[in-house]
Amino acid sequence: MKYVKVEWNPALPGFQLDASVYLNELPRLSEDLPPGAREFATAPDHYRFRAARCVKDLELAGIHVPVGKGERLVLRFAPNEWKHEEGLCLAYEGVTHFSVASDREIDWTEVATVVLDEITPAPGGCVHEIALTDSTIVVRCADLRATWGGC
């Protein structure tokens, strides 16, 4: 991610997080984001760690990769039982890139939890990067639609 800092600190052990640079840049960046991405990125609780609609601590519950040109890429996130009242569905339109990568072997039997995310403008839309506890998801798309409560 360009602005949001997510770094593993083995001394804690845990993640050190800093979204302050991104939050300072977001008013400027949001002018160039497509409408759905702008609404999601600038939502008041998006980066309030204790808020029920903060993305931090959501649990990756499913990925629907489109097979036809008319379909959307969909990421489903389940609520963390200690924090969220409902899950989140992210539906991406006009996807030109999708990847899940990790520096280490991904354990698909374990729950991957959202650490933080960042949405930045890109030619023809935006880039959404989501840092998970064991990997990173990157989506380049025309726009996205975020729906709390499921798909």
Rank of each mutant, 00 (worst) to 15 (best):
I63Y: 05
A37N: 01
I119C: 09
S102W: 02
W8I: 00
L17P: 02
W8P: 01
L90W: 12
Y22P: 00
T136Y: 07
K5A: 13
P123S: 10
L23S: 10
D32A: 15
V139N: 11
G14Q: 02
K5W: 07
R28W: 03
V74G: 07
P123Y: 10
L73S: 04
G87N: 08
A52Y: 08
V115K: 01
T120Y: 01
N24R: 13
A146T: 03
Y47P: 06
K69H: 08
V139W: 12
N9P: 00
P79L: 08
P10V: 01
G70V: 03
A37V: 00
E71Q: 15
L116Y: 06
T136P: 03
P27V: 11
R53N: 13
C141L: 04
T133D: 07
G70F: 05
E31I: 14
A91V: 06
L73W: 06
H46G: 01
E93N: 06
Y92N: 11
E118I: 09
R140A: 15
H97I: 05
D103P: 07
E31V: 15
E129L: 13
R53W: 12
I119R: 08
V21E: 14
D57C: 00
V138K: 14
E25K: 15
G68L: 11
E81H: 11
K2A: 06
A11T: 11
L23W: 14
K56S: 15
A52I: 12
L132E: 03
H46L: 05
P121R: 08
S99T: 10
T96H: 04
H64N: 08
R140T: 15
A61S: 11
D45C: 00
V55W: 14
R28V: 11
E129Q: 11
A101K: 12
T136H: 05
K69G: 13
V4E: 04
D32H: 14
E25Q: 15
T120H: 02
R48C: 06
V115F: 00
D32I: 00
R38L: 12
G150N: 06
G68S: 12
Y92D: 10
Y3M: 05
T147K: 14
T42M: 12
F98S: 05
I130T: 04
V139C: 09
I130W: 01
G62R: 03
V21L: 14
L33C: 09
W82T: 13
L144F: 05
W108A: 13
A112E: 09
G62H: 05
